[in-house]
Design a protein around this nucleic acid. Structure first.
Lengths: 210, 210
DNA sequence: CGACCTTTGTGACTTTTGTTACAATCCGCC
DNA sequence: GGCGGATTGTAACAAAAGTCACAAAGGTCG
């Protein structure tokens, strides 16, 4: 585990911290589609992502979903950090977008390391900031953009995090992530195809020039 | 200033920290409507709110606004904290919703106190969490609610933070906050009036039973 | 091969929200 | 009093998004 750690976090954490993480952390490998965290669940640990992509979703009372953002290598989940404080139930759902490897840290270490390691403090703050900025971007999208623009952004973002210009999803799955309906998404995708920006196939979409 | 501090933060900060804040902080009093922070501006300090309410707005490239959330007594602006790290320009606009009193802390103290004072660490984390949760609520509103529901929530929130069941705003101002148009807001308000939930007047709205 | 489920395409229609235009009213101020 | 700006009310229309219904095409598996 220590070398996995060093790959992803070696140049930002000092030696002592790396050693402590290696000691108390547990390594996990999860397949694409695996649910890492459910809304309302108690949070057991804090994840450090080594490889792969995790998608973070929000759900309303009627079960409607919305994709908030992706976590990538070197990221952690700030939402998890909130557990240390007041409320300890998750507000979000986390699902592995790709196969992923991560290290779980017991929550009680957070406080301790924040006092002890400067690099940990920086990491935690930076995580919070990244998450706040991603939330702002999400708000910008849903508040200021129309569905056609949101769809283009969705396809671009997805291609980027997966490093793959082929989007392997059905229209229905995309509709869930964008909190829209399948018919609407099919319609807009067809329009993008007619503009020559994508190619539609069964179960996947080829991005040509977005 | 020290007694203002003690009123709002006395039971959560230890003596040493209170003394340091009193030493390096500067007291400010601003009138309702005063702009405390503009998008793109460099951040000079971190505000600790003593009394009053601050509203936090987001703006897109075309100048369209959206109210994100309110800061109340005992709150601080997490967005400001991001300045310590990477990017140091504000992503949001802050405007005094009511007359407000606050203490500005030089940014460089943040890192120092985070290492030194446990209560400061807790405060900072709690602030981040509050802000993240407020952002989630904002996302819930714009993603999952229709404009009529959002308007009701807006009126309720506003009445709560101002401790006043009279909303002293024009329809146009409400439309800006909700990123909608004046005509739409007038229409929905009229419907609420017909349901007996509010009373409409020139320049103010009386909440009856929302 | 053929029954069956999943996925996609499409027309017709509704609802929600936004836009344009204009009238009516209120209010301050000369 | 009356001029002029700000505010509100409303009709008519347009655009965006969602819903319903059903057809067509793909793929699985007995």
């Amino acid at each position: 585990m220590i070398q996995e750690l060093r790959e992803s976090y070696g140049n930002q954490f000092e030696e002592g911290l790396l050693a402590e993480i290696a000691q108390v952390g547990t390594f996990r490998e999860v397949p694409a589609g695996h649910k890492l965290m459910e809304i309302g669940e108690y949070i057991k640990g804090m994840p450090l992502l080594i490889s792969g992509v995790i998608k973070i979703l929000r759900e309303d009372s009627e079960g409607d979903e919305l994709l908030l953002y992706y976590l990538e290598q070197g990221d952690t989940c700030s939402m998890t950090m909130s557990c240390c404080m007041g409320q300890s139930r998750s507000e979000i759902r986390a699902i592995a977008e790709t196969d992923a490897r991560l290290i779980m840290i017991p929550i009680r270490k957070m406080e301790e390391w924040t006092a002890k390691y400067r690099s940990w403090r920086n990491f935690v703050f930076e995580s919070y900031n990244n998450r706040l900025n991603e939330m702002l971007q999400t708000i910008d999208s849903i508040a200021f953009m129309n569905m056609d623009e949101r769809l283009v952004k969705y396809l671009k973002d997805k291609a980027r995090v997966n490093e793959d210009n082929t989007i392997r999803n059905t229209h229905q799955e995309i509709a869930y992530d964008l909190h829209s309906s399948r018919v609407v998404i099919s319609r807009l995708l067809k329009k993008l195809e007619q503009m020559g920006k994508i190619e539609l196939h069964r179960n996947y979409i080829q991005i040509l020039d977005l």
